Computed example of a mutant assay.
Amino acid sequence: MSHRNLSSAEIAQYQKDGVVCVRNAVDPSWIEKLAAFGQYQIDNPSQLANDANPGQKTGRMFTDRYLWRSNDLVYRYAKDSGCARLAAQAMQSKSSRFYFDHLLIKTTQSNTPTPWHQDVPYWPFRGKQIASIWLALTPVTLEGSGLEFVRGSNNDNVFYLPEAFGTSDKNANIGWTGKGEGVPCPDIEADRDSFDIISYELQPGDALIFSAWTLHGAPGNKSASQDRLAFSTRWLGDDAIWDPRPGTDPSVNVSEVRVQPGQYPNDNAIFPEFYYEE
């Protein structure tokens, strides 16, 4: 399988804007496999699934995560697709460790938006070198729930309070959100002209690499014919430290992590290092 490298211009855009669109980010052979897996998973959710309007063909927002622990395809994608190297290049990090995978599906005619937020307040880490690679498995337009970003917000050094979105009967951990530190996220939808908002249309295989500090969100999927499937992987760079503070995602069991708060997460069982620049 072929592996892509980021250009110097793509790296500069990530650093400046907090997001870069990477065309043909991974080998095409991954797309059909991951799309089929996504359709399977929505009918066979894990205990960490989050499902708005479950069981319906339309109007549904579904997510599932940490699937690499039990699914060989997801593990091989994280390890072998080249995403680890792309993340390291974007973050300007010598290494990248895998944090978790995240399947994101919005079916047709879904009115449920993904609220504006940044990722880092939700996660038990600190550091600027923390990023996601959001891979499109279907064509993505803004009308079809494409992601939007506040350009440059990764460099504002503002920490926003995490808030819950979506619902799930399965997800017993939903109560952890909204209890951490930070300031409330601004009401971007009420004053869009005051923010430098950017978005991208994607084809299957295109990816968005964005910083965990970048404000982003997505509208509902208004399409009557195209579900939106995406598969995101989350990555930790050289400056990431383990920080399981109150209000962060408890899905990684603190008792299993063999590093102390404030230390680099060099626990290969929980956060495997999939790339290191020699």
Results as ranks from 00 to 15, higher is better:
residue 222 K to W: 14
residue 176 W to I: 13
residue 148 E to S: 09
residue 201 E to H: 03
residue 204 P to Q: 06
residue 163 E to Y: 08
residue 171 N to E: 12
residue 238 D to F: 01
residue 199 S to D: 15
residue 163 E to N: 10
residue 233 T to H: 06
residue 189 E to W: 11
residue 224 A to H: 14
residue 178 G to A: 02
residue 223 S to V: 06
residue 151 R to W: 14
residue 180 G to W: 04
residue 212 A to C: 11
residue 193 D to P: 00
residue 192 R to L: 08
residue 188 I to V: 08
residue 157 N to Y: 12
residue 187 D to C: 05
residue 198 I to F: 02
residue 160 Y to M: 01
residue 201 E to F: 05
residue 198 I to R: 11
residue 187 D to N: 14
residue 188 I to Y: 02
residue 200 Y to R: 00
residue 213 W to Y: 08
residue 184 P to C: 04
residue 163 E to I: 11
residue 202 L to Y: 10
residue 193 D to H: 02
residue 178 G to I: 04
residue 208 L to S: 01
residue 217 G to L: 06
residue 202 L to K: 01
residue 211 S to A: 07
residue 171 N to H: 09
residue 218 A to L: 03
residue 177 T to L: 08
residue 181 E to S: 09
residue 228 R to K: 06
residue 173 N to D: 15
residue 240 A to D: 14
residue 191 D to F: 08
residue 235 W to A: 00
residue 232 S to K: 04
residue 174 I to Q: 11
residue 230 A to Y: 01
residue 210 F to G: 02
residue 236 L to R: 06
residue 178 G to C: 06
residue 160 Y to E: 10
residue 208 L to C: 01
residue 180 G to C: 08
residue 204 P to K: 03
residue 185 C to W: 10
residue 153 S to V: 04
residue 182 G to C: 04
residue 173 N to H: 09
residue 224 A to C: 14
residue 209 I to F: 04
residue 185 C to P: 11
residue 173 N to A: 06
residue 207 A to S: 10
residue 182 G to Q: 05
residue 236 L to T: 07
residue 194 S to Y: 08
residue 161 L to M: 15
residue 208 L to K: 00
residue 170 K to V: 12
residue 175 G to N: 12
residue 181 E to I: 12
residue 222 K to I: 08
